[in-house]
Structures are given as C-alpha cells and as structure tokens.
Design a protein around this nucleic acid. Structure first.
Length: 214
DNA sequence: CTCCCGATAT
DNA sequence: ATATCAGGAG
C-alpha cells in the first residue's frame, strides 16, 4: 500500500508522545489521556508517579489527593477513580504487574481495546490490535481506508491492510498525522504526504458549506 | 445513547 | 459560541 510507504518515510519512528518509564506508567498515562492531549498528561504524571510509583501505592492512595493531581486533565473524578481502581485490580489480580494480553488488560477498569493496544504494542512489543482513537478514526475515514464508523470495525479494516508486525507503528503514525496535519477542523492538505491517495471523505463538504455561508 | 470535565483552537 | 482533545462506563 502506497499510503503505508509514505507514512513510513514521514513518521519512521512513530510512537506515543506520553512520557513513561515502565509499563505501569504507560498504562496509567494512557488511561488519563482520554479526551486530553498527551502534553497535558505529561504535565501531571511527574507528580503522580512521584507520589505513587507503582500499582500497590496507587491502589492505596487517597482518592482526593489523586483527584487534585489529575484535575487539569478534565473528567478528574472519574479518572482518579478509574486509575486507582485499575491499580487495585493490578495489585489484586496480577501481583502488581501489568498483564501482557488483550483479554487481561481490557478487564481493568478504564481500559478498552484502544488503551490496551497502546500498552501492548508500545511497552511489550505485543501486537494484538491497532489502537483506534479519534485521530485514527478521522484519518482512516478521510483516506478511505475504512467506510465504517465504529472503532472496532475500523480496527478490523486496518488490521487487514497492514502487516501485523507494523500494527503498533501504524496506529501511532496515523495518530501523529491526525494530530499535526490531518487535524479535525482545518486539515493542512498542502502539507500532507498522502494527499494524492486521499478520498477526503467529509473534508471538502465541510469547507464548502462553511464558505457558502460566508 | 449520555455522562464525565475543562482548556484551547477556530 | 462551538467543536475538539490517543475513551470508556453505565
């Protein structure tokens, strides 16, 4: 696929922009990154992991203290509850270690296929899925890589298109592309290395309707 | 489907 | 003013 080759050249080392030092930190940081930028998450994790460096300490954390730390991320009550709950599950069911399989990871509170794929691929090199977040969803639809809207369906379509050993990289590449070039509101098609292969699903429609009203 | 949450870009 | 930001649970 041409698209994959172009992306390879543009984003050869695509990976998460979250800061992490071990699988536990990556798991918690990825849960926290829902509906927030990685940059924001990176601003709170030094204090979070300074106070709670592992699953056992976070499992026994004071909820209010965790809420205060993650407050800048939004959804702070839910996120605090979720990461403490996930830490408790890690401590009780997995001896404080992050499990290395999709089926085990998605049992943790706050962890769906997207978060699990990130952790598996990035921390363990285990490729059981492709992380489909809002960026991957949008870029895949614009490019015409998938006609589906549901993340699970998009994931299946992408997995059929890309060799398994590149699943993790491909997800990160689409995310970076979506974050910096194929952005939601005003995609910078002139800077896009795969514009020639893009069906621009929904792109020109939005622009023209906006321009007509002007 | 709604809710959780608030900063930022447009 | 509104859409959006590496979603997942109820």
């Amino acid at each position: 696929m041409q698209i994959r080759r172009r992306l390879k050249k543009a984003y050869p080392d695509a990976t998460t922009e979250l800061n992490w030092r071990n699988p536990f930190e990556l798991l918690i940081a990825t849960i926290l990154s829902a509906q927030t930028t990685d940059k924001k998450v990176n601003e709170v994790t030094p204090k979070l992991f300074g106070n709670f460096p592992d699953a056992h300490s976070l499992a026994n954390a004071d909820l209010k203290e965790v809420e205060e730390i993650v407050k800048p991320l939004g959804y702070f009550r839910q996120k605090a509850k979720t990461i403490v709950g996930a830490a408790k599950a890690l401590a009780e069911k997995f001896d404080g270690e992050v499990p290395k399989s999709m089926s085990e990871l998605i049992q943790l509170p706050g962890v769906g296929r997207k978060t699990a794929s990130i952790v598996l691929g990035t921390a363990f090199g285990v490729q059981e899925g492709i992380a489909v977040d809002t960026h991957v969803q949008r870029v895949s639809q614009r490019l015409g890589l998938s006609k589906n809207k549901k993340p699970e369906k998009i994931e299946q379509d992408l997995m059929a298109l890309v060799p398994r050993n590149e699943w993790s990289w491909f997800g990160h590449a689409l995310t970076l592309h979506g974050r910096y070039v194929c952005v939601a509101r005003k995609p910078q098609c002139s800077k896009c290395v795969i514009e020639a292969f893009c069906e621009k699903v929904g792109v020109s429609t939005v622009l023209s309707s906006h321009q007509i009203q002007k």
